[in-house]
Design a protein around this nucleic acid. Structure first.
Lengths: 230, 230
DNA sequence: GCAAAAGTGTTCTCGGTACACCCATGC
DNA sequence: GCATGGGTGTACCGAGAACACTTTTGC
């Protein structure tokens, strides 16, 4: 074996694809870089992992710095390690995605690593810094699959929501159109959401009933693993 | 930002869970370590990633060194980066799994990194070096899911096989028992395998018919993505 | 009263599942 | 002839998919 020291010359980072859902549209939180490389380009929030820091902890740290949020859904997706992906040296990055409720996000975090932070529609993105387009695509694909085995609505929607909002969420993630009646039949038969017996107010049409997730059922489901096909 | 040099002190490795199938049993190829740490314990084949080497290339290199094989199925699974997972310093490892035909494997590779290389049943494993039990479990779980979206039999079985062998493969991976008639109905209805009009020889019972995979259909299927529920 | 979205059932088809007996070969 | 695994068909049930009209509100 060669001298071990030859190998301890790399750095690694975490990059976090933070998904939110608003106005019928799946969004991702991007930062405008205020330093080289890729100055002024949009990119994923991320940072180097400290020497004494676990990978997951680093991902949570970045998430907290950017959004002010803890205890949110976070999942490791893939690791990207092309030799030349970072101009400063050998840097491999571990990609995570997280799901947050846009309403919980506090817009003005004092984030030193970014000049500007903004939600972008996943469906219309321009060129991002580094290999971040590729990373984002991988995370979006993972989310598409995850949606079938995990009730992601619980993470992305506000505490009270309408069935139409929930349907639009699935449609945005899966990039399909769903039949309203079939969707409702299916989702209600899971007994995962609860009718709050309240209604929307101030809308210029028949107000929709509001629902919430049943936390106990949700936890029982996630523990045993289940199938969420739609 | 702190001085960048502080971060370029880490090493990373790839570890490869090499699956094979033989005698109705799912196997994994392990090495007996001939150096510290974990001297004489069994562990996953893996190695440091060179500074000028892409991650996937490193995984293929390890695979080639251990098995003598190229062009086999290889998939990145997860990255493990607990601070103290490696006694020599900060080493994060990217886990891959690959699928090979046990018959193609040449038992005596001149592998410098191992004293001994041996197939082990996935169902009865002892304690492995590092966090390799955890890594193996993650890869096995991934394989369980992958089996539903990819015809893994194509990678794990010899060119000619019987339907019972194929069924046993699925049973070993999914850890369930399948109904013989239903399995055959389903698998034959996919038109993915071809009756070779040949039979087993030298067995002490009615000889089974031999089948092969239809490579064209297989490639068409994998290109468009498909569903392999069983 | 009109625009806009909410809410609601039935039918058909297809795939999944359960299930038991005869067949071909080696010894 | 017997032990061993190979090979075959049918009936039932439930989930998914297609499909259109009435209701409630704000303006």
């Amino acid at each position: 074996m060669p001298v071990l020291d030859n190998f301890f010359k790399s750095a690694f980072t975490v990059d976090n694809v933070i998904f939110g859902f608003d106005d019928g549209d799946l969004k991702v939180l991007l930062i405008k870089r205020n330093e080289e490389p890729f100055y002024n380009l949009w990119g994923l929030p991320g940072y180097f992992v400290y020497q004494d820091e676990d990978l997951d902890d680093a991902a949570y740290r970045v998430l907290l710095e950017i959004t002010g949020l803890k205890n949110v859904y976070l999942e490791q997706v893939n690791t990207f390690g092309k030799v030349d992906r970072h101009p400063s040296g050998r840097v491999i990055t571990v990609a995570y995605f997280s799901l947050i409720k846009i309403g919980d996000y506090n817009q003005f975090q004092p984030a030193s690593i970014a000049e500007e932070i903004k939600w972008h529609s996943v469906s219309k993105l321009n060129e991002l810094a580094f290999d971040h387009n590729e990373i984002l695509q991988a995370c979006f694909n993972r989310l598409k699959r995850r949606v079938r085995s995990y009730p992601v609505g619980f993470e992305l929607l506000p505490p009270k929501f309408t069935l139409t909002e929930l349907q639009h969420l699935y449609e945005a993630i899966l990039e399909v159109n769903l039949d309203k009646r079939n969707f409702r039949k299916k989702i209600l038969s899971m007994n995962l959401i609860v009718d709050l017996k309240e209604s929307q107010e101030g809308v210029a049409h028949r107000p929709a009933r509001l629902y919430k997730f049943d936390k106990e059922k949700y936890e029982a489901f996630t523990a045993e693993g289940f199938n969420f096909e739609l």
